[in-house]
Each structure stands twice: as structure tokens, then as C-alpha cells.
Computed example of a mutant assay.
Amino acid sequence: MPAFLTSENAVDEIMAELAALADERILAVNQKHGDDHAVNLTKLRAISKRLKKQQELAVQLWKAGDSAARLLALLICRPKEFTRDELDTMLREAGTPKIQDWLLNYVVKKSKHVEELRTAWFEDPDPVFASAGWTLTADKIVKQPEDRDLPDLLDVIEAEMAGAPERLQWAMNSCLAQIGIENPELRGRALEIGERLEVLKDYPASPGCTSPYAPIWITEMVSRREG
């Protein structure tokens, strides 16, 4: 297949290639995490490197609706070419955690609309979309901590994180950890909240990976910086 596709059949050719790469064993593993793509992500990235950046093709692949096609679309798109409303619609169409994660990290964070979307999603009553706002807020805590009222954010985390739906809880927990890591004056309170709420305390961390349990996460990252 040529590296740069411009024919009307480009989407059909790529969809056929993705279908040929589909593996039921990969699908079974992904379904345990709420995802539904059956293509190995290393192979998907190899396709994206061959195709390079092609915005129109990315748009068409996204419209195809298939999860593997949408993940590929996020790899070959040009983030700055999406409008604010297009990105909002894409989040609402994302459907699975992996697509939402890639959309936020590979596209929205590189968009000129990131702050407007962060604010809107943060206040969204739907926990799936609110989780996107919290995820972008965690990123902002690291990059622009002066733009957030962090004590008030800790108040919300303290009051709501323990009872939040899973995806939102993970995003709020990330904010808690980043506040503790990046702000020595608030570290004690962040640790106390994490220890009292015990969110993700028993989550099994893979070998070599830091636990998502905020007190362990904060302590380990601060230790690495100071060491």
C-alpha cells in the first residue's frame, strides 16, 4: 500500500488492513478494561508512521466509527486543524477509555482550544466528560499551577473523589497526586486526603510501575526529584 493515500478507496483499504490485523485475543484483553479494539497498538503505530499526517484521511477514519480506525485517526491527524466544537463532538463520540485517553493526550492538549474545553468539560454533569476536564486540569497543575485555586480543588477532591464513578475518580486522583508532587505547601494535606480516602490503595501496580495510590505516588515522585 502506498505511504500517502489520496484515492476515494483509501479508507476502505485501511479498514481492510485493520480487519486483517484484528486479533480476538487482543480484543478479549482490551474488553476487560472497557475497550473494544482488536489491533495491536504497536502495529497500529507502524501504520501511522507509514501514512504520516493526513488530516482529511484522519477525519474520514474517525467517521468510520471503528475503534481501531479512530485510534489511527488520532495518530495521523493535525490537532490544530480541529475546531473547538469538533473536538467536543469527538469526545462525546469517543466511547472507550483508550480513545478518550489518546484524544486528550495526542490531540486536545495540542489544540489552541484546550483551555476552553478543559473549563467546559470540568463542569460537565456527565462523569465521563467531567473526567476529561479533570485530566486536563491535572496536566495544567504541572504546567501552570498558578492558574488554579488548588486549596479549593482539594476541597472538591476531598468531598467527591471517594464516591465518584471509576473514570472520574481516576482523573481526580491524578489531580490529587499532582498537587502533592508539585506543591510542597499543600503536600501534607494531599497525603492526608489520600490516606484517609484510600482510593486505589489496593490497585495492583505492574512491576516497575508506580502505584496510582496517591500517597505512594506522591512520596515516590518527590523522592526521585530530591534524590
Rank of each mutant, 00 (worst) to 15 (best):
R25K: 13
R225D: 13
A177C: 11
S111H: 02
R70D: 08
I47H: 13
I181S: 02
W102N: 06
I218Y: 04
N9E: 10
M90A: 13
A162E: 11
L71G: 12
M161H: 01
K63E: 15
A138G: 14
K32R: 11
A120T: 15
V108T: 03
E195R: 09
Y106R: 11
P165G: 00
G65R: 08
Y203A: 12
E166L: 09
D101P: 02
S223E: 08
A22M: 07
L168F: 02
M15I: 12
L41E: 14
K112L: 04
T96V: 06
F82P: 00
R167Y: 00
D147M: 14
A20Q: 13
W170K: 09
K109F: 01
S174P: 01
V199C: 01
L200D: 10
A10W: 03
E195V: 06
K43P: 02
N40F: 10
G65E: 13
D149C: 08
L5C: 04
V114W: 04
S211E: 05
V142A: 14
P79V: 07
D23N: 15
Q169D: 03
D124R: 05
E182Q: 15
L186P: 00
T42M: 15
E146G: 07
A177Y: 06
I193P: 01
E86W: 09
K98A: 14
W170L: 10
A58Y: 01
K49R: 13
T135R: 06
F82S: 08
F122Y: 14
R78L: 12
Q169N: 14
R50E: 11
V108Q: 00
L75C: 02
A120I: 10
N9G: 05
E185H: 13
E123A: 14
S48W: 00
P127I: 03
G188M: 10
T210R: 14
E123N: 04
V142F: 12
W121Q: 13
L87A: 02
A19L: 08
I181H: 00
S131E: 09
P212V: 02
V222W: 08
A138F: 12
R92F: 11
R148V: 15
A22P: 02
L75W: 06
F4Q: 06
Y213D: 10
D152Q: 08
R70Q: 13
S211Q: 06
V59E: 14
A38H: 03
V29H: 07
T210P: 10
D88K: 00
D101E: 15
G95Y: 06
V39L: 09
E8C: 12
E86P: 05
K49A: 14
P207Y: 02
M161E: 04
A16L: 06
I99N: 08
I47E: 01
R224M: 10
N40I: 04
K49M: 13
W217N: 12
R187F: 05
Q144L: 11
G163M: 04
Q178G: 00
T6A: 13
T210C: 10
M1C: 07
Y213Q: 09
P145R: 02
M172A: 01
Q60N: 14
A130Y: 05
A162W: 03
S7D: 09
V11R: 04
P207Q: 00
A46Y: 06
E226W: 05
A138P: 11
V142K: 11
D155E: 09
S7R: 02
R84H: 08
H33P: 07
H33L: 15
I47W: 08
Y203W: 14
N173P: 07
E166W: 02
A19T: 13
A94I: 12
